[in-house]
Amino acid sequence: MMQELLQYLFAGITNGAIYAVIALGFSTLYNATDLINFAQGEFVMLGALLLVTLWLQLGLPLPLAFVLVVLAVGLAGILFERLAIRTVRKPDPIVLVIITVGASIFLRGVGMVVWGRDPMAVPPFSELESIEIAGAYLLPQSLWIFGIVMILVVALTLFYKRTLTGKAMSACAINKRAASLLGIGTERMTLMAFALATGLGAVAGIMIAPITMATYDMGSMLGLKGFCAAMLGGLGSLWGALLGGFVLGIAEAMGVGFVSSGLKDAIAFLLLLLILYIRPTGILGVKSSHRF
């Protein structure tokens, strides 16, 4: 029993770390622009599929492929902002939802045409044996994921606290008009936020590819779960995204382990509905939800 529990916990934390990174993408963008990008999951998909091309098909070394994938997806995010978001004349939520949903289905279509319909297997980052802890097995890929998430969190914290651009971005998050009065270019911040959010999506895609395989339609469910994680922790909060991701990952693993595996995808949605009912600001969220 203990052994099983530990095994599910490992699986939960691993998936949770990935949800957390996707959630970080949602929060970064929401902070800078008040926008929720329904295509976030598709950037995760792009990350996974580009990794297949660069690492497995072109044979680039993994670290180089990693960096190139993140840069390429970040660039796609910038293009997306320039072409589809900046050009909107009437930025109502409903218009932006339709545009980002359109982008999501468009990218999925592109993914299908370019990479085909079949899922592609991706080997783990290193060919090590699983580590046994108290009878449960920990995959080396999980260790990679924890490591990458730790580095991301430290880097993001430093970015927001220490660099001028990061501070400017947090200022935008608190009050956009005041920030622009202080001479912070909100346009550039929006662009930065898109690049950062989609780049984070790519990182998540790269990390999850060896666990679930890579396909053109992997993005929608991951996007939804990332959003759920962001909402759970509190949309816009860095630590909230992490907490939300792990809570969701562990809840899913336990649900699959102890109740039914068919339940897996339903748990995210049920948690989302629950958090919207009882506390729309999330566990750590302080920013009050908009009244209008």
Partner: peptide, 14 residues
């Protein structure tokens, strides 16, 4: 199909 629907949605809204 998906590219067409996605394109229609984005194009009309923009």
């Amino acid at each position: 199909e998906m590219i067409i629907y996605g394109g229609i949605l984005m194009g009309v809204m923009i």
